[in-house]
């Protein structure tokens, strides 16, 4: 029995267990990565406007994401209540006198809700507590009392320069690439490079050389044309001598029709010769049946002679007599002679 059929149950078992195992592993990995199994601590804060705040927005602490905004609602006192949760791994950062700040970048490079920790090292705030906004009365009061550990304000110019730095680096890399491209083009034009462009430039050079030769030839032809034109202009030149009233061609043509009569005679002789040829052809055509009859009679005579010779050879006194003659139908038959 085939191995696969013999151990079908085992193979299918491994196939199923491995498949479900992989599925569970994938689900577990997704869950652990997206904190399905981790505990989150709910807090809320109050702002004057929801502008710049959105559901799912990150809560950060010194650049680390420590939580997410879960809900935003407008209360009956026209205050925006922002509910958010803090990851269990960072819950110890949410200490007493902590405040929230909505940060938006002046140039639009992102932003978010930032947690500023209270200066006093205390236990984490109880879940569901209010963490005041830094712009609220309570928040301003805490800041004024220096109870909040605010980071030093970064120098705006320095920040702008830090943003400009990658742009300058990009420009630098583009310049370098342009320089390389120009070097490559120079190398190609100098003929010291390989590649399609270099081949094209070489081909163009070859074409230019051929063009130069062609231009030289055209120059020679133009010289000849110029010389001919000069000859034509010269009253004592070759052309006036040929074509003039006293020229050779004029003399040939002005001969009291002597040339014409000569040509007429030649044509009459040719016509007489052609008539002779025609008579000869007609005679041949008229004698063709007689020639054919003579040829046919000759052939029959040859056949009869052959039979006589065969009869003599097969004479009963000598051999076995005259053999019966078999008619050989002619093979020269057209398709029209066939009977359908």
């Amino acid at each position: 029995m085939k191995f696969k059929i013999r151990f079908a149950r085992q193979i299918v078992g491994v196939f199923v267990i491995l498949g479900f195992g992989l599925l569970l592993m994938i689900i577990f990995m997704i869950g652990s990565n997206q904190r399905w199994f981790a505990r989150n601590y709910e807090y809320f804060s109050e702002f004057q406007s929801a502008s710049g705040i959105s559901q799912g927005m990150s809560i950060t602490f010194r650049g680390f994401q420590i939580g997410t905004v879960t809900n935003i609602e407008l209360t009956e006192h026209n205050v925006v209540a922002v509910r958010f949760h803090i990851f269990d791994t960072y819950i110890d950062k949410v200490t007493e006198n902590s405040v929230m700040q909505l940060v938006s970048h002046p140039l639009g490079f992102g932003g978010g809700l930032v947690l500023h920790q209270g200066r006093r090292r205390t236990d984490p705030l109880p879940e569901g507590s209010l963490i005041p906004s830094i712009n609220s009365g309570l928040g301003r009061s805490l800041v004024a009392q220096d109870l909040v550990a605010l980071p030093e304000e970064p120098d705006q110019i320095e920040e702008l320069l830090s943003l400009l730095d990658p742009i300058l680096r990009n420009i630098d890399s583009v310049t370098q690439e342009a320089e390389q491209l120009l070097a490559e083009v120079n190398a190609v034009l100098a003929g010291s490079s390989q590649g399609p462009l270099a081949e094209t430039v070489a081909a163009v050079n070859a074409v230019l050389l051929e063009l130069e030769v062609a231009v030289a030839d055209i120059g020679k032809i133009a010289g000849n044309i110029e010389a001919t034109t000069a000859e034509m202009r010269d009253p004592t030149g070759l052309v006036p001598r040929l074509l003039g009233a006293e020229g050779s061609i004029a003399r040939i043509l002005d001969d009291d029709e002597e040339l014409y009569r000569e040509i007429e005679k030649i044509l009459a002789s040719v016509q007489a010769a052609l008539e002779d040829v025609q008579q000869m052809t007609e005679y041949l055509v008229s004698t063709t049946p007689q020639i054919s009859g003579i040829l046919e009679e000759s052939r029959q005579a040859i056949d009869t002679g052959q039979e006589v010779l065969m009869g003599v050879r097969n004479n009963p006194l000598i051999r076995g007599g005259i053999p019966e003659r078999l008619e050989q139908p002619t093979t020269f038959q057209g398709f029209r002679d066939e009977e359908f």
Binding site: I27, I30, W36
Partner: peptide
């Protein structure tokens, strides 16, 4: 790679494909 991938994939994706 796994972190990026499992960040992009969600439970809804797994449920949808299954």
């Amino acid at each position: 790679y796994a972190a990026g991938l499992f960040e992009a994939i969600s439970g809804a994706d797994v449920a949808s494909t299954m």
